[in-house]
Design a protein around this nucleic acid. Structure first.
Lengths: 368, 368
DNA sequence: ATGAAAGCGCTAACAC
DNA sequence: GTGTTAGCGCTTTCAT
């Protein structure tokens, strides 16, 4: 196997990177000694360590993680799928996740997937990289795929989404109760004509938020709740809200399935229809993204505490990566109904919390 | 090397993944035949191909990209560094980049780095993964590090940032002319008291935007330009703008070094000080992020066409990855001054473009 | 504590 | 076109 067979380009700077062998030779030790120096907890004498580290520095040695992964069968990489980051909630989540993973020694192999289309083919690709785990942010995978991952012993955590099968672990906000609480809040505010702007149909998140909202209201004999689909996107949400506000019987309370759409709604209501949120109409979102707190918006919303949720993801991952029995678990994180200016405030139930106001129903919303 | 030495856990599902060998045996061919089936352009007979693919399907075979990378010395992975994604411009860029890279067969290994702190140590880590290239979004690397990458033959592209050394390629918007144009625009609008809200000090982007703005104005005998630092962050920008508006001689025109800060400024001016942008005060940004076009904001801004810029990144990458002489090049992408409601409109120079209005100076801003 | 040797799963000559 | 063979750079027994 003559390496020399390849013609040497004149001035070729792309030398072969330094290997542990090179370091070993320079340090006058064996290659395994070099390896041990870079293996936490291996037994190396101080002298050897010094010699190796000096040689390594001189040669600019960087252990080849690829070779290491091949043998250890751990890449220290977690595959992370995110939908397009139009929605700031996802960006924030990705950010927090990436930082949290870095802290426990993992890198992120990123996959931007079409929110609507299936993510299976691209995930198929990821698996070739032997990622140690998969985190899917607001993206589902077919149950068939989930099965395969489980058989491979590959931990999968869904963030802000659940699977029907329940095979994979999931971390979500309290969609059901949050939505109920929003319904209760709007009802307490004296509203009569309700509307719901849905996110992506059939997404578990939308399903739960819609179910919570509608079931609470219909149990209180509220009828004729208008419904539009906003797909969690700017353009669809704008059309949805516009169509609602053009109704003869204009709704006086709109619950948008996430903050991003609610902010769009705020724009349409104010600029397009001259309505003042909180007075002429109430608009509520879900997520509590940063911008919801911006003065110009002042969006009332149910919070999903990203950091807490990410911590739970990390917890699940650590447990599963350490080789424990991979029991799928569904974590639900409670949030709070953050009260700002975009919706009429009920007379009771408000209390100060931290730097803002929150609302709590007199009694916990009943379960239906 | 007894693999059996490890105690087999009862119900252990983590089998050894299928290898090319397993497939070969089942298909009754050699292992290299299997390899060839998965190598585009290799010569395999139709029969062999069929046999292999069937065996592969039955066994759920997935080629091990790690092993492949070890020998080919190409990981098909690009390391991408992003600062925290508080600024939507970065999220959008990451998104577009990730999609564009996927199209040419590359994955993204992500690094969320602290915008301020040095990114070198974490990048050091990345190199162990033998990434084929590095894209740094709004993040610089020390020139020492750049040198090392060049010696390694590792292509580095800076997005929205330049290095002093000019060793690495860069793709940026037209910061200098954009900022000049903004100055000209505000001057044409009849403004007298100017202010600049800077981003991160010493970032090349901020430096150029500031230089363009200030030099244009001072060449026109404008004196006493107020300056605050907003660090591209929400909180710092808020304080900066607040301090400007509390001035006895309140500025009547504020240029914020990016859109994100300009949106914050819009919030502060309207809600905090009861000023109506476009009438009482002019606020201009830089980037033209999606939200700048939202009705409630209507931010006048100089655009940085993300897709075009990303295409340029891809172009540079493709050229360098194909092994061409790695000449660093600095690409500057022109944008447009998008005119919306947040700033007073000059009498002349406006024209319709696409779905909005743009402004162009009568003559190109002179070079100083 | 250290070195020798055997691979991890694959690609790439090379012979046939 | 296909099988054989020699590694890619590392970790991990196993002896010493």
């Amino acid at each position: 196997m003559g390496r020399k067979s390849r013609v040497t380009v004149i001035g070729d700077l792309a030398h072969r990177p330094t290997t542990a062998h090179d370091v070993a030779r320079l340090a006058g030790v064996s290659q395994s000694a070099v390896s041990r120096v870079y293996t936490p907890g291996a037994s190396v004498s101080p002298e050897t360590r010094i010699k190796v580290m000096e040689a390594a520095k001189r040669l600019g040695y960087r252990p080849n993680q690829v070779a290491r992964s091949l043998i250890t069968r751990r890449s220290n990489i977690v595959g992370v799928a995110v939908p397009g980051t139009e929605n700031p909630f996802y960006s924030a989540a990705l950010d927090a996740l990436s930082i949290a993973l870095a802290r426990i020694g993992y890198r992120v192999l990123l996959f931007s997937v079409d929110a609507i289309a299936g993510s299976d083919p691209i995930l198929e690709e990821v698996l070739r990289y032997r990622v140690d785990a998969l985190v899917l942010i607001s993206t589902s995978l077919s149950s068939h795929f989930a099965d395969e991952c489980m058989q491979l012993g590959l931990p999968v955590v869904l963030f802000n989404r659940k699977t029907d099968s329940g095979l994979a672990s999931s971390v979500t906000g309290d969609n059901l109760n949050g939505a109920r609480m929003i319904a209760a809040f709007l009802l307490a505010g004296g509203h009569k004509r309700f509307a719901f702007v849905a996110g992506v149909e059939h997404s578990s998140t939308n399903r739960d938020r819609e179910a919570g909202f509608l079931s609470y209201l219909s149990a209180r004999k509220v009828r004729h709740i208008e419904r539009r689909v906003g797909n969690y996107s700017t353009t669809a949400a704008e059309a949805a809200v516009r169509s609602l506000l053009e109704l003869e019987k204009q709704p006086d309370a709109i619950f948008c399935a996430n903050d991003h759409m609610a902010l769009v709604a705020l724009n349409v209501a104010q600029v397009g229809f001259g309505l003042q949120p909180g007075r002429d109409i109430s608009i509520v979102g879900f997520d509590n993204i940063d911008m919801a707190g911006w003065p110009l918006f002042g969006l009332t919303t149910y919070s999903q505490p990203i950091q807490t949720m990410i911590d739970q993801v990390i917890g699940i991952l650590e447990r599963q990566l350490s080789g424990e029995a991979a029991v799928a678990l569904q974590q639900v994180t409670q949030g709070e109904l953050i009260v700002r200016a975009s919706a009429r405030k009920p007379k009771t139930g408000l209390s100060q919390s931290g730097k803002g106001w929150v609302w709590r129903p007199r009694t916990e919303p009943a379960v239906f």
